[in-house]
Amino acid sequence: MSKHDEKKLDAKGSSRRKFLKSSGMAVGGIAVGGALGGLLGMNGKGEQPPTDTATEETQPAQQHDQALEYFTNRADFDLLGQATERIFPEDENGPGAIGLGVPYYIDHQLAGKWGINAKDYRQGPFFDDKTESGGEVRLGGQQEQPYLGYQSQLRYHQVYDLGIEAIEKYSQETFNEGFTALDGEQQDEVLVALENDEVDIPGIKSSFFFNILRQSTLEGAYADPLYGGNKDMQGWKMKEYPGVQLRYKPEQVESKEFIDIKPSSLHTTFNT
């Protein structure tokens, strides 16, 4: 029996997903372990949800504690969150992408000038690697597209829209379930396919979206907390990165032993 079939036979999990879907809160099976699950009471008796799948053990809940500036559909946002969590999961080091606020960081970036590629060169003609003329570029010599960088006419927010849509479609086609209803290993399979150009996204290779998603996730984990991720500097704390320090003393510079330095952020430094 395949993993997929097992999952289907998991009656409890299945009914929970149905419940959430029918309630209009398309958050998938994952959120039930956290705030939303608790709020809904799941089975109506306020019981703690069971933790009988890997998914429920490893996927933290997405808190709604910052403004959404780009996404309008909560399902898209939750899919994004779970994808970033697989890229940068919660573990013994500390929180993963969701716990760090990475999905909010990405949401805010997509709503801003980065999301519309405001500082990129945007004049055509565009020769991206899926068009016929893109092929011509490659055939002109031994040149591979990667050496030329971003050539798509899609803007980042469009890349994300199409990418999220494609992940969902691929999950449905492969597992008969949406991405957020998959267990962690299945979600990883989808991301591997994305990374290996096996997911169809209009206009771009799927690895192109994967690489942007990975980069955005790392940015959200480690950018100053004022950007919405790196919650409580936990990204920096995991790395033992001291953040915003206005000076290091000569004895710190020259120390033969590693020194623990309490991290500081723009907020803690400038809110005096």
């Binding site: 060169y121 010599g141 040149q143 030329l148 960088g149 971003y150």
Partner: peptide, 20 residues
């Protein structure tokens, strides 16, 4: 967005803009 350069490896190729 105001100005960049274009790039190719050799004269047989079409140069494309460095967009980022």
């Amino acid at each position: 967005s105001r100005e960049t350069l274009t790039f190719r490896h050799n004269r047989d190729q079409r140069a494309l803009p460095m967009r980022q």
